[in-house]
Write a protein that binds this DNA or RNA. Structure first.
Lengths: 244, 244
DNA sequence: ACCTGAACACCGTTCAAGT
DNA sequence: ACCTGAACACCGTTCAAGT
């Protein structure tokens, strides 16, 4: 059905470009529907669509349409949709701006990593949940890991304690960013929150401690919430026990 | 096409139950293809399928087939597939076995929560990633939160520090379980790991610290890895700074 | 009250064919 | 080398109709 009404195609239309002599005025080889497909353009557009509509709405067909191409053409450039998601995710990590040189206090580097990663993840609300569900092995993710490993090494972490500390920090950033993103994505955060709050208060026998403590009724608290968790982690890192 | 070859249906087949007089031997009103649908049976079967085939493979049609019903029938019991996933997830949290009474040392309760949650999540490898990507507001998840909030209150946490500490612990368990599950799901974990290791070593200029520290080449290290992160968090909780 | 059947508007991916 | 077109085997969900 939808194939019968060409939306962005150009077959069958008589355009000035078809007129005799038009060869001379036509652009050389480049496709008429925009720039050619390329690995980079596909990934960049995927990120754009993911930002706008979320991960559930991204399809190869919608992506292709936006690129002025057919869905099947994408498969010349990327193997699967899953690969594309990995590429889009690493593109987000590529936005992470880490200090060029390591600072005197290694804790400052850890803070820079954590707050920096959090803010790129919040710029792309689909990214944190995705990052939590697959290995992060892209070059930009590895670059970020390298930075963290170096800072922690300066802090005295070695061997297995090094990887455990790094993983713990990363899990915290991904987890808190994901949870923040998912709450903020719903337009009615405040309404949902007070509904949950009411629900808990109505069952105060079951949830005596939880009711009344349901977090973050104020929107601006997200930032402070993140920083409190980060301080807890930094305090944990400071403890010699963590180093073995 | 697929509708023309009845796979598990029973229309058109002559069975002994169709024979004259068979009325008397037939079960009363119950459907022929198994017990009737119910909220509980749908959720339990969904968990079963998720355990076996993962979240990507779960569809309303496959689930219905396994229940001996049609996909559309499920919609009388659950509103959407998304709701069903929330229900399945809370069913996993329901398996979490928490101490009946709180122990003398609140840290032991925190440990019990963390290790307990980790093990139910690893029993259902799809669960951790899902839990990280949506609010956990089911009754069993709330029960677990109540337990943690109570333990932390005993530990001296109050107000915003209480929710921040609780969230930090939860993010760690979900993140580490998710990452462990995703690595273990691939049949060739060892092979993948040494491929990554080789990749890093080949780029030792870019990743001087990371190369050679790529974690967990031994499978049994997952457990110790988790416990090291947990100790780091407990050390963080112990620091007075975390309480305000 | 509970379930079916048909239908709608989609999916990811393969592959021969075009340029 | 890069892209199209047709096709395959699926999806979630709605809704009128059956019992």
């Amino acid at each position: 059905m939808s194939a019968k009404q060409p939306k962005s195609g150009n077959k069958g239309k008589k355009t000035p470009e078809d007129a005799p002599g038009a060869v001379w005025f036509r652009a050389e080889k480049t496709s008429r529907t925009g720039p050619q497909l390329s690995h980079e353009r596909i990934v960049a557009t995927a990120v754009e669509l993911l930002d706008r509509d979320g991960v559930q709405k991204l399809s190869m067909r919608r992506l292709a349409e936006r690129l002025g191409a057919h869905a099947t053409s994408l498969y010349w450039h990327v193997a699967t949709k899953d690969d594309l998601l990995d590429l889009a995710l690493d593109a987000v990590f590529a936005e992470l701006d880490l200090p060029g040189e390591h600072s005197a206090a290694w804790q400052d580097d850890i803070e820079a990593f954590m707050t920096g990663l959090r803010s790129v993840l919040l710029r792309h609300p689909w990214a944190a949940a995705l990052a939590g569900s697959r290995p992060l092995m892209g070059p930009s993710a590895l670059r970020a890991s390298e930075f963290t490993y170096t800072a922690l090494t300066t802090g005295g972490f070695e061997g297995v304690h090094l990887s455990s500390a790094a993983a713990t920090l990363t899990h915290y950033v991904l987890g808190s960013a994901s949870s923040e993103a998912v709450w903020r994505e719903r337009s009615d955060e405040a309404a949902t929150r007070s509904a949950v709050d009411a629900h808990l208060r109505a069952r105060i026998d079951e949830y005596p401690t939880l009711a009344g403590h349901f977090p973050l009724l104020d929107e601006d608290d997200w930032d402070a919430h993140f920083h409190r968790g980060m301080r807890l982690l930094l305090a944990g890192l400071a403890s010699s026990e963590a180093r073995g």
